[in-house]
C-alpha cells in the first residue's frame, strides 16, 4: 500500500500539486491520467522520492519514505521511465544486471545471476543476450529496461511488498508493445506482491487495463475510482476540455455507461 496524505508541491510560484491524498492498493493496476501540466509526473517523482516532499506525507506500508536509505529504497521500489539511452556501448545482460547493483558490492552473487536469468526469460530477451544495447530497436531497448527495473525488485520468495512506478513508459512504443507491456505487468502482479502506480497518456489503454484510475487536473484529484466511474462524460469534458462525443466512440466497448 502506498498512502499519500495532504501532498503539495510548489515550484517557484506555481502550485504543481495541491493537497492530494490517496491510497494506492497492492495487486491492482493504478493508473494516473490527466491533461498536460496536471502534475502526473510530479506525483510519480514524489512517490519515488526523486523529488522531496516538503509538505504532506508519503508512506510505503506504514513507513514514511524519507526514513529509508537510498540503498534500501532501491531494493524495494523501482521506476520505469521513458526510453533511456546509453552513452557508451554495453551488452544487454550487463544492462539487466545493473538492476541488481543495490544488492551486491564487488561481485554479483549467484542469486543475482539467477534473478537476471529469470527476468530475461520472463521478457523473452534470450535472443538479445550478447547484443550491444545501443544497436537495439526502441521496443527492444524498452523491454531490456523493463527487465532491468524488475530485476531490481524481483521477489519470488517473501511476501514483502515491492513498489513499481511507471513514468509514461509507453510513450515511444508502438501499439503491439504497449499491449505487450501492460499484459506482462498484469501477469506479474498475479505472481508477486506489488504496488503498481503508473502515469499514462493513452485513455484507451487506461480504460482497458487499469483497475483504479486517478484523474488529475491542475494539481488536484478531479476523480478517482474504477474505470467506469472516472471516465464519465462529465469527467472527460471537465478534465481534458474536449467533447465527450469525440472520444466516446473509440472506447465505447469498454466503458459504456
Amino acid at each position: 500500500m502506498v498512502t499519500i496524505n495532504k501532498l503539495s508541491y510548489r515550484f517557484g510560484k506555481k502550485d504543481l500539486l495541491h493537497d492530494i491524498s490517496y491510497r494506492f492498493r497492492p495487486g491492482v493496476l493504478n493508473l494516473i491520467i490527466g491533461p498536460n501540466g496536471a502534475g502526473k509526473s510530479t506525483l510519480i517523482k514524489m512517490i519515488s522520492r526523486q523529488l522531496p516532499a516538503p509538505t504532506g506525507t508519503i508512506l510505503y506500508g506504514k513507513q514514511p519514505i524519507h526514513c529509508f536509505s537510498p540503498n534500501s529504497l532501491a531494493k524495494m521500489r523501482a521506476v520505469l521511465s521513458q526510453q533511456v539511452d546509453l552513452v557508451f556501448p554495453m551488452q544487454v545482460e550487463e544492462v539487466v544486471l545493473m538492476g541488481r547493483y543495490p544488492y551486491f558490492n564487488g561481485k554479483p552473487a549467484r542469486e543475482d545471476y539467477r534473478v537476471c536469468q529469470d527476468v530475461i526469460t520472463y521478457f523473452d530477451l534470450g535472443k538479445l543476450v550478447g547484443r550491444n544495447y545501443n544497436t537495439l530497436s526502441g521496443g527492444e531497448k524498452q523491454r531490456v529496461h523493463f527487465a532491468r527495473v524488475l530485476a531490481q525488485i524481483w521477489n519470488k520468495k517473501d511476501t514483502e511488498l515491492r513498489y513499481l512506478l511507471l513514468d509514461e513508459p509507453l510513450t515511444f512504443l508502438d501499439i503491439y508493445y504497449q499491449f505487450n507491456f501492460l499484459q506482462k505487468l498484469k501477469e506479474l502482479m498475479q505472481q508477486q506482491p506489488l504496488v503498481v502506480v503508473g502515469v499514462i497518456h493513452d485513455l484507451h489503454l487506461a480504460a482497458r487495463f487499469a483497475e483504479e484510475l486517478v484523474l488529475l487536473k491542475e494539481g488536484s484529484i478531479l476523480a478517482s475510482g474504477t474505470v467506469n466511474e472516472v471516465l464519465s462524460k462529465e469527467n472527460i469534458q471537465d478534465g481534458f476540455g474536449i467533447e465527450w462525443t469525440n472520444v466516446f466512440t473509440s472506447f465505447l466497448h469498454v466503458s459504456d455507461t
Binding site: 519515488s48 526523486q50 536509505s69 537510498p70 540503498n71 534500501s72 529504497l73 532501491a74 531494493k75 523501482a78 521506476v79 521511465s81 533511456v84 546509453l86 552513452v87 557508451f88 554495453m90 550487463e94 544492462v95 545493473m98 538492476g99 547493483y101 543495490p102 558490492n105 564487488g106 531490481q152
Partner: peptide, 21 residues
C-alpha cells in the same frame, strides 16, 4: 570500488539515483 556506481551513471543520473547511488 567505483566501477559499479559509474556503470549506473551510463543510464543517466536519474536512473543511477533510483538504483540507490
Amino acid at each position: 570500488r567505483l566501477a559499479h556506481p559509474l556503470n549506473t551513471l551510463m543510464l543517466g543520473e536519474q536512473e543511477a539515483m533510483l538504483l540507490g547511488i
